[in-house]
Design a protein around this nucleic acid. Structure first.
Lengths: 190, 190, 190, 190
DNA sequence: AATGAATGAGTGTTCATTCAT
DNA sequence: GATGAATGAACACTCATTCAT
């Protein structure tokens, strides 16, 4: 069951993401995924034990990938605002560039496929963000609210804006991004 | 003659929302909906031509209901901040109290069930919000950014926070809500 | 269960015949029959215990009606050829004027609805025809073949010709009918 | 790789014919066909897109097969009566030996399955018969009636006789067949 | 490993029949 | 009696999964 051909597993992932974006988790079949990935249905089952495992596996991959992106160029030694801005922009860019993955992850949360353990395991990846926010609070640079609340405030506005931009077929320019960041910062700053 | 029972359509809606929250759009069957609504499978098809129409219909109902809630107690004559706060709280409360509907609407956007026309028709309902934001900009009370961006900033943070609170099994207290509003207001105010 | 309103039972029969002609026995539902007859589905079951009984009942009615028509103006005292021709024309006219019934009867023979007893019961109705043919043979006016064979020869050509005419949307004129009769007569005459 | 099995499509056809003879088009289900053909229900749908296509396809196959049989041993160079008799006997034998197919074709004409185009396409197959009859008329060997009328006269008596023989469980002997042919010939000869 | 035909449980939907009004 | 909403078994069809090649 361990995939020989890594490229093929990747093709399957890509096919799945593309179909989920187009039709939602509710609408995809193993047959369609196979066709989209240019392989036979049976081949899917060489790489993934079943549909649930394919979805869970892709979910994990996406979560890990996103975590990796989030902390690109980020150093714990940075001044708080620099670090925060770095991550904020990473988050925005991830959502824009890998929109499909973001949609997929969103859809997964309310699906019968994703197991609780899979959800748990992916939480830990974002610990560094928690620490950053905590340090910001200690330095009294940002409001002394619940950390998770501050984070969801930050993430929520990004997610929603990117979604809107995507469906309205509108680009998020450098200037718009800067405006968005300013709003977010004004919202959380002390 | 047994007249068609309006309550029954409502039961079907409720059953659907409950199941979608529990298992996602991907996981529900007409049989389950019927069982949850305490009716026979065939009866579903008296009230809705097919699954797609049931989902679309429920989508429209939810959208209309949410729009109605959003503008409760809101008067165009109110001072801007009062009006904005009124709607902000309406939005928050809607998301909290009718979490199922919110989840359902989110799931629908990437589903094969919702037709484009259904999506279009529901957009218009939120026009008053646009006007409010515009007037806020004219009075120079809030930042002069794109209206939609300001709105998604507002909505995004609410949505994400409520989602998080729900899944973490945490209540949003009066104090937390007020903190959330403050962050939102600080973010958009001029 | 004994129908109060004879007209209504007749409406049901007519609706059934019309639908069978249009879509075949395979394609009709009790709901459609009711709609075509302008009554409610439930009402069907006041007049007929179930679908099978409706079909069987209609089958019997048609058979009896056709038998009645076949022997119109026929007298056993007639010279053989006159009698034969009378019946031959009755048969032809029946098939033309009540094409729907003929189609229905044909379809019934290979359907799961008609019971064997129903088939048996309708056979007896055509005894007078057998006698006529027998007498023709005795008078050495027609070939001394098996009676049933002579009869099916006669009936078969009529049935097929009417069917063809109907589907080709062509009328059977007086002249054509006479030609047809001549062929039949030449075929069986001694 | 397991290649698609041509024999299987044939098994499906045979199962369908057998069931149609036994219960009529009205009474057969895809599940029964599958069981009769010793395959799984899903397998049916590999070979035929849906029930309608299965029926249409079988209809076409039967029609083509029958056309092929009709003209066996027939040569346009034959004297008219020899040619006519050859085809007449082919027709008779086809109806006897492949009674199931004949029943099926008859049932199809009034079914919701057979499309108009399918009906059209099969008409052309019988052109050679038309030519034969026309030549017979030119040689003044047979009556100068409408060609189609002559043909339906011929076909009708055969069809009906075979049907009757089948249901009466009676064999059509060589002698009976010859008698039948004689009647037909006497009927059409000039 | 790769294929896609084969499987059959499961899904959406229909429809004969019943039942409350 | 008449109605048509309600029922649920049965149907056409799908699709995750297996298997022969």
């Amino acid at each position: 069951m361990k995939p020989r051909d890594d490229k093929k597993a990747d093709d399957i992932y890509k096919a799945t993401l593309s179909l989920v974006k187009a039709k939602g988790l509710a609408g995809i079949t193993m047959g369609e995924i196979a066709r989209e990935a240019n392989i036979a249905t049976g081949t899917l089952y060489i790489y993934f034990k079943n549909k649930s495992e394919l979805i869970n596996s892709l979910f994990t991959v996406c979560r890990n990938a996103s975590a990796a992106v989030y902390f690109k160029n980020f150093e714990t030694s940075m001044p708080f605002k620099t670090g925060f801005k770095t991550i904020w922009y990473n988050l925005l860019n991830y959502r824009i560039k890998r929109f499909e993955e973001a949609v997929f992850i969103d859809q997964c949360y309310h699906s019968p496929f994703i197991t609780e353990t899979t959800k748990e395991m992916t939480k830990k990846l974002f610990m560094p963000l928690y620490s950053l926010i905590d340090s910001g609070k200690q330095q009294q640079l940002i409001k002394d609210h619940d950390t998770i609340m501050l984070l969801t405030f930050m993430a929520g506005s990004i997610n929603e804006t990117v979604k809107h931009a995507y469906y309205a077929n509108r680009k998020i320019t450098k200037e718009v991004a800067e405006e968005m960041f300013q709003m977010c910062w004004d919202g959380i700053k002390a």
